[in-house]
Amino acid sequence: MRSIVKLAAPAAAAALLLAACGTTGGDETTAAEGSSSGSSSCPADVSIGFFGALTGPNANLGVNEQNGVKLAVDQHNAESGACQVTVTPYDSQGDQNQAQGLAQQVVGDENVLGIVGPAFSGESKVADPIFDEAGIVGISPSATNPALAENGWKTFFRVLGNDASQGPAAATYISDTLGKQKVYVIDDATEYGKGLADIVRESLGAKAVKNNTIQTGQTDFSAVVADVQASGADAVFFGGYYPEGGLLLKQLRESGLSADKLAFITDDGAKDEGLITAAGAAAAEGALMTCPCLPPDKAGGTFVADYTEAYGTAPATYSAEAFDAANILLDGIAEGNVTREDLLAYVKSYDKPGVTKQLKFDEKGEPSEVSVWAYKVEGGEIVADQEINAS
Rank of each mutant, 00 (worst) to 15 (best):
C21H: 15
G34W: 05
I214F: 01
A230M: 06
T177M: 01
E33F: 02
R2L: 14
K376V: 06
T302V: 08
S124A: 12
F303L: 14
L160D: 02
S255C: 06
S258D: 13
I136N: 09
Q358R: 15
I174R: 04
I174A: 03
R340W: 12
M289S: 08
E191Q: 14
A230Y: 09
T219Q: 10
Q75Y: 10
H76S: 11
W373D: 11
G332V: 07
P43G: 10
G81I: 04
A44W: 11
G312N: 05
V377H: 07
Q75F: 08
P243K: 01
G332T: 11
A8P: 11
G152D: 07
E378N: 12
F131V: 06
A143G: 04
A322R: 08
K364M: 00
Y311K: 05
R2G: 10
F157E: 04
F361E: 10
A345H: 10
A374N: 06
S39V: 08
E133T: 13
C293Y: 15
E335A: 13
L71W: 08
L102Q: 04
A82E: 10
V137N: 06
V224G: 00
G152R: 09
A322W: 13
S175L: 00
L252D: 02
V372Q: 01
A11K: 15
A233Q: 12
A284P: 06
G301H: 14
E65K: 06
E366S: 08
E191G: 01
E378L: 08
D132I: 11
S222M: 07
V69C: 06
L18V: 12
I382C: 08
E65G: 07
G68D: 09
V159H: 09
G179Y: 06
G354R: 15
T190V: 03
A12Q: 13
A72Q: 14
T339H: 12
S3F: 10
E369T: 15
C42L: 09
G22A: 11
A263Y: 07
F50A: 05
N211G: 13
S368H: 13
I328A: 08
S92C: 02
G22C: 07
E123F: 04
D27R: 08
V185G: 03
G68R: 12
K357H: 14
I130L: 13
T339R: 08
D27S: 10
V304F: 13
V228F: 05
